[in-house]
Amino acid sequence: MHPAPSVIVFSVLSGMGFGLLAYLGVGLVHLSGWLAFMWWGLGYGLAIIGLLAATLHLANPKNALKAFSQWRSSWLSREAIAAVATLVVLAPVALSDWLTLGWPRQIGLLGAALAVFTVFTTSMIYTQIKAVPRWNHWSNPVMFLAFCLTGGAVLALQPFAGYALAGLAPLLWWVWHIGDQQFGLRAQTLGTATGLDRIGDVTVFEQAHTAGNYLLREMIFVVARKHVVRLRLIAVGLASVGPALLLVLLPHHPVVFGAAALCHLVGALAARWLFFAQAEHVVGLYYGKRQGFDVG
């Protein structure tokens, strides 16, 4: 799948943002005054920047509002609603923290739940797609939620953040490993896609068109195997190992958290780029473009 920057930025930032909001909502970080303003602001900021980035990906944004209408069937619609709901529900809590109004915080728990649920809906947008076997697996939501909670923990200056981050590394390897097998497990080939396997081995003789088209741009992204290996190492290093070491070895000073957060962010972006770039859509079969990475 084509790794569109807008979608990568959106899902990573909003993921972290909603993660932070969750911690704030639960009250694991309980700040007040301008500190509260800054932290809530960071959470809201990330979440909102993320959502805005997502609209950049729309070819026809003027209809974006209609996206709230199909919650019955569409995970994307549910995400939109959940995201907004989260932001609304947490608003009074944020307000009371900032202005130290001392309002009851129970509603924060609901907001936190919504925040996590929002990230879950995001993950389901991809997980539901049977046509992309790598995504179509329960490990996928696990991965999204893991990023959400660790990233959030770092931003929320949680003491356990370092260990959470450390846990990401094996998780990522495991998700990639699972993912690498999915296409094969679905046993879809050019032969089954065309039904011509009933005759013999099928290969592409001539492409349907020598010119480019939307499918080739959007759904058929070819990335070199060695590239993938390198990026996986970078992603794990920056998203997990690096920041984990920082937080475990260095004193828990906000600056250290800041550094760890930035490092994690870059790693998360790399991981998310891979999430798309490695994902193969079955339509690639019709173009003879199945490549497969058994590198996990």
Partner: peptide
């Protein structure tokens, strides 16, 4: 249609 492309992703 808002042009999100998700349906094209969903079509095998």
């Amino acid at each position: 249609c808002m042009g999100c492309g998700l349906c094209a992703w969903a079509c095998p």
